[in-house]
């Protein structure tokens, strides 16, 4: 297999290309159309989340029992939900939960994946074997079912949902990092660090970790997309705090209160489009970063 040389090229490419600081990085990034579009989408939804209290025409939690399930009108552009709450406002506020869960869960999963990948790749041996078998296990089983069961048992609060998604999504990151570490640790400068008596932890975090960082970064951006997807699916299935305003929750309500079978498209289509867009935004950005860091990875 030529995976080793691939990783070398990759790292050389990333070091050469990120060498000229943040500004140089941005100058190269902005030439990538897909990446810029993706970043634009992320900024759009971040602004939506921050400005939700300003741009929403109504308080998203105000119940108006005389106006439940009303169609779009000049007062309520996207109609009202099963409790007479303004749907447009709820769609704006939904950006908050999606981004919070996305970023927090991605941070957890990337951190765990990074640490496990670094140690597993560096030390090898039986610990590596066990870690890789655990990773195999996680990669194969239907993770969503696993998340449902755990969240249902420990209680589906926002924090628990973040923890469950974060702690069950690390295996693919761990695998990627491990395979890179396996190759990096054979490089002469690591060997010389070992000969000079560098402690394992020092070598791992001082010499190896910085070299895998570009991958970790691209990986983290992709992880946000999958965490948002997982959260939306969980809430849609009824695993989540019903007082939180989220896109998946709105779609759940649309089904639960018969709005879908009544043909109320304004109830379901906007939150779904938002989910698709935000996921696309993170995927496109992550993909472009990966492409930039790795000159060999072009095309699909």
């Amino acid at each position: 297999m030529n995976s080793q040389t691939e990783v070398m090229d990759y790292i050389k490419g990333s070091m050469r290309r990120t060498g000229s600081g943040v500004l140089g990085f941005w100058n190269r990034y902005k030439r990538n159309k897909i990446g810029v579009a993706g970043l634009g989408i992320i900024i759009f939804f971040t602004l939506m989340a921050i400005l939700a209290p300003v741009i929403s025409p109504y308080n998203p939690n105000t119940i108006n029992s005389s106006l439940y399930l009303s169609p779009p009108s000049s007062a309520h552009l996207l109609g009202t939900d099963s409790l007479g709450r303004d749907l447009l406002s709820r769609d704006f506020y939904g950006a908050q939960i999606s981004l919070i869960v996305g970023f927090a869960a991605a941070a957890i999963s990337v951190f765990v994946g990074l640490v496990i990948g670094l140690y597993s790749g560096y030390f090898g041996g039986w610990a590596d074997e066990i870690l890789m078998r655990v990773t195999d296990f996680f990669l194969v089983i239907p993770t969503l079912v696993f998340m449902i069961v755990i969240a249902a048992v420990i209680g589906p609060s926002l924090v628990n949902v973040i923890l469950v998604i974060g702690l069950l999504s690390w295996p693919s990151t761990a695998r990627t990092i491990r395979s890179m570490v396996l190759s990096i640790k054979n490089w002469p400068f690591i060997e010389s660090a070992m000969i000079n008596g560098g402690k394992s932890n020092y070598i791992i975090f001082r010499h190896i970790a910085p070299n895998v960082f570009p991958v970790v970064f691209a990986n983290a951006v992709m992880s946000v997309a999958s965490a948002i997807f997982a959260q939306a699916s969980l809430v849609f299935l009824g695993v989540g705090d019903i007082t939180d305003i989220s896109w998946g929750g709105t779609i759940h309500n649309a089904f639960a209160f018969g709005a879908v079978s009544a043909g109320m498209w304004w109830y379901v289509i906007p939150p779904g489009l938002f989910i698709i867009l935000v996921i696309l935004g993170f995927t496109m950005t992550g993909y472009s970063l990966e492409e930039m860091f790795n000159p060999k990875k072009r095309g699909f």
Binding site: F229, S233, F236, V260, S261, G263, G272, I276
Partner: peptide, 18 residues
């Protein structure tokens, strides 16, 4: 592939009812 499964299903229901 990027579409949430449950959402695409919802769209088909809307179309089917129409």
């Amino acid at each position: 592939y990027a579409m949430p499964t449950f959402w695409l299903g919802g769209i088909f229901i809307l179309i089917a009812i129409y």
